[in-house]
């Protein structure tokens, strides 16, 4: 969806645009291990990255950008930590900072990659509450996760993938034992029987 990995088959459009052309619509929260935590950056610096563009040539922050950063941080409840070193924050707080970064962009679609892999249950709930608040603002939120606990309570729709689409729809309807086994069960047997494009329409969409 971010246009970074080429499609192996089928097609994908976002608001009628190719993924690489629709990047301004997407706010991305990367996996924790994709970030270089060596850099002793402040919370403000990380959130402000959401406002950096190809034509950003000033190392200084404008008043307008500072205001956007402060508003985004107050939405995730971390305004008082604005000058703190990001490495001093807990896993849940870091996720909230990265969410605030996507909010500065004003993107309509938020893409969260394994957002809860480095957070405890309490922090996960806090992040989930913020995500629900963001949803109320009319944004679409997509979360990639391997954790299927409480999916029925947390998510409106679920797309189950294991190299192909196993199921899609209301989690309380589609998340059957068979689908769960198809995703996490005996892969050898499943892969023998399923190939990309064997579900859905002929184009693999």
């Amino acid at each position: 969806m971010t246009g970074i990995t080429p499609l192996s088959h089928g097609s994908l459009t976002i608001k009628g645009l190719q993924p690489s052309e629709a990047r301004s619509s997407i706010g991305y929260v990367p996996q924790n291990n994709q970030i270089n935590w060596n850099f002793p950056l402040s919370v403000k610096q990380v959130v402000e990255m959401g406002l950096i563009r190809k034509n950003t040539f000033s190392p200084f922050s404008t008043k307008k950008n500072n205001k956007i950063v402060e508003e985004s941080l107050s939405k995730v409840g971390l305004l008082e930590r604005i000058d703190e070193n990001i490495n001093n924050l807990s896993g849940g707080q870091i996720q909230r900072v990265l969410l605030a970064r996507t909010l500065t962009q004003g993107a309509d679609i938020l893409l969260l990659d394994e957002a809860f892999s480095a957070v405890d249950i309490g922090a996960e709930e806090d992040v989930m509450n913020i995500i629900n608040d963001i949803k109320q603002d009319g944004k679409t939120i997509l979360i990639a996760t391997h954790d299927i606990n409480n999916i029925k309570e947390k998510y409106d729709e679920v797309l189950c993938l294991n190299r192909h689409c196993c199921a899609f729809g209301d989690p309380s309807e589609v998340l059957t034992e068979g689908v769960i086994e198809e995703m996490y069960g005996s892969h050898n047997q499943i892969l023998k029987e399923h190939r990309p494009g064997s579900h859905g329409n002929q184009n693999g969409n």
């Binding site: 997407i26 994709q34 970030i35 270089n36 850099f39 402000e48 990255m49 950096i52 000033s58």
Partner: peptide, 16 residues
């Protein structure tokens, strides 16, 4: 700012 963003979060910078 661009080099710092890319150094800190290369994939995030690419998506941006």
């Amino acid at each position: 700012k661009q080099i710092l963003f890319y150094s800190f979060d290369p994939i995030g910078a690419q998506v941006r």
